[in-house]
Amino acid sequence: MSQNPSPASSGETNPRNVVTADGIPAAASAEGTTAPGTTAPGTAAPEAAVRPSRRTGVDQRKRTLLRLNASMVIGAVLVILIFALALVSFLWTPYDPSAVDPVARLQSSSLEHPFGTDMFGRDTLTWVMYGARITLMVGIVAVGIALLIGTPIGVIAALFAQYPWGAWIGAVIMRANDILLAFPALLLAIIFAAVYQPGTGPAMVAVGIAAIPGFARVARSGTMQVLGSEYVRAARASNRRVPAIALFHVLPNIAGMVIVQASVAFAISILAEAGLSFLGLGTQAPVPSWGRMLQESQQFLSTHPGLALWPGLFIALAVLGFNLLGDGLRDRFDPKMEARGNG
């Protein structure tokens, strides 16, 4: 998990604020979307002699029901695969995950054990299927926490920032958010493991809390953008109240960005959980988890490399799936993608 940049701290005139998401491909979507330098805030020198240029083709994006792209399709297939694995494990697995078979220890792939067996003779395929459950549960809970707390925080901070009397509230919220960023998910999870007992629960909550700033940022910048738009001015001139504007104008317009962020945060959660379990600070034995399988495989690296292969492969596939899905969704939703092209 360590390899995921999360957005770093800083203030109003900081180019970082423009980096859309804290996830891996945040700025790295297929065609590239963010260029903080070009929109660097605080740069608006008084431009007295320039009025808005004639725009010819803004927002001419075709919003077909499903505009598919390769990233999205591959990502969706992988994500569905992982979900299917987890769901099927509730109904059926080849073996009982705790069924120990000393005779069939450390086997490689065979018809009976397609993915082989571990040092206790337990079926690796069964464990991979059970592991998918934990992986997805951690992802859902962590992203749920981050989304449900982070998004309102961001929206509220942006709403307050409009008023002279509320600007400081918005600023304080975002500064607190920035300080939270100094605690990467792994660090927070280790702290939780130290204070409470190591386990799936604290790990999920820690990863979720660490992901809050990402959502808050995306929601805030999206809300600021919407609030600054002429259609919100029009709504105000039409006597809509702030809650109505937030509900009917802001939320639908930032939903896309938040969904993208959720997809990316899901990938980060998967990596975080695997890393924690690898350290022995996440999911505890005997619950099957990909990270711990990988950790246990370490002592057999020279003799049975296959043991590391399967959990490693599925961690990578799950992360790849959510990242690709996020990329594909970003191409559809990112407002900057549509403004291009002029005569």
Partner: peptide
């Protein structure tokens, strides 16, 4: 209710995620 505005940018002054009927009826909802 007595004073209404027509804005400059026809691409920015209409919420892209609303139907025309909802956009036009917005002042009436209030």
């Amino acid at each position: 209710e007595n004073l209404q505005i027509v804005f400059q940018d026809p691409f920015a002054s209409l919420d892209p995620r609303m139907r025309v009927e909802d956009i036009v009826s917005e002042p009436l909802i209030a």
